[in-house]
C-alpha cells in the first residue's frame, strides 16, 4: 500500500476517516433533536433555528471557517474558555471534526427531518393513550420508525465531512499529520510540481469512499425499512 501511496497521503486518508466519523457520531444526537424540534414543535424562533441550521449550506465555506476561528480560536469567546479547561480546537484534528460536523449538519438534519415528518403523529397519539410518557413515545415508536432516515442522514453527513475543505483549511489550516485531511492533501499535492500522480491516487480513493458510503446508505435504509414495515 505504501508503495502506491506515500505515508503522508495515507495519513491524510486515515485522518479524514477519523475526523468524519467523529464529526458524525458527535453531532448525530443533536441532529436528531434539532430535526425533531423543527418537524414537530411550533415555537418562537422556529424560522431562525431553521435558518441557522442551513446557514453553512449557503455561506461560502471560507466564511464559516473564519467564523469558527473567531469563536473557537484560542482568542475566540468560546475558544478562550475551552482553552482554560484544556481543550484546544484551532489547528488540531478535533477542530477539523468540528468544522466538518457544522458543514455536514444541514444535510443530516434535512434527511432526519424528512423521516420524522413521514411518521404519522397518530401513531404517537395512540402510544400516549396506551400509557407511554412523551420520552418513551419517542424511544419506542418515533425512533425505530425514523432509523432509515437517521442512517441516510448519517451517511450523507459522513460523505460531506470527508469532502469538507474550505472551512477546514481556514479554521485548522493544512498541517500534515495534524489537520491535513484528504481534500487538503489533494490540494497540497497539486501545489507542488510532479504531485499530480499522488493527487490522482487520492482522488480515486475519495471517489471509492464516497460511492461506498452511498451504496451502504441505500442498502442499509432498505434493509431497515423492510424490517420495520414487517414485509
Amino acid at each position: 500500500m505504501t508503495d502506491w501511496l506515500t505515508p503522508e497521503a495515507w495519513q491524510a486518508v486515515r485522518l479524514s476517516i477519523r475526523v468524519s466519523l467523529w464529526a458524525v457520531a458527535a453531532s448525530l444526537p443533536l441532529g436528531v433533536f434539532v430535526a425533531y424540534a423543527l418537524a414537530r414543535w411550533r415555537f418562537p424562533g422556529h424560522g431562525l433555528l431553521n435558518g441557522l441550521v442551513h446557514l453553512p449550506l449557503v455561506l461560502p465555506p471560507v466564511v464559516t471557517g473564519y467564523l469558527l476561528l473567531l469563536t473557537f480560536g484560542r482568542r475566540g469567546w468560546i475558544g478562550e474558555w475551552l482553552d482554560q479547561v484544556g481543550i484546544v480546537l484551532a489547528f488540531r484534528w478535533t477542530g477539523a471534526a468540528l468544522a466538518a460536523a457544522i458543514m455536514a449538519f444541514p444535510l443530516m438534519v434535512r434527511a432526519i427531518r424528512l423521516a420524522i415528518e413521514a411518521v404519522d403523529p397518530k401513531l404517537e397519539q395512540a402510544a400516549s393513550t396506551l400509557g407511554a410518557p412523551r420520552p418513551w413515545v419517542f424511544l419506542t415508536v418515533t425512533l425505530p420508525l425514523i432509523l432509515p432516515g437517521i442512517m441516510t442522514g448519517a451517511i450523507l453527513a459522513f460523505a460531506k465531512a470527508m469532502g469538507e475543505f474550505g472551512a477546514t483549511i481556514t479554521f485548522v489550516s493544512n498541517i500534515p499529520g495534524q489537520t491535513q485531511t484528504l481534500p487538503s492533501a489533494i490540494y497540497a499535492f497539486l501545489q507542488v510540481p510532479g504531485g499530480e500522480a499522488a493527487a490522482a491516487r487520492l482522488v480515486l480513493i475519495a471517489v471509492v469512499i464516497a460511492m461506498a458510503a452511498l451504496f451502504l446508505s441505500e442498502w442499509l435504509s432498505r434493509l431497515i425499512a423492510r424490517r420495520i414495515r414487517g414485509l
Binding site: 401513531l123 407511554a132 420508525l145 424490517r227
Partner: peptide, 19 residues
C-alpha cells in the same frame, strides 16, 4: 395528560405500530 388517564382508545384506523 393522555398517558395518565388510563383510557383505552380504539381509533378508526387501527394505528398498530408497524415495527
Amino acid at each position: 395528560p393522555p398517558h395518565r388517564r388510563g383510557i383505552g382508545y380504539v381509533f378508526q384506523e387501527a394505528r398498530l405500530f408497524p415495527h
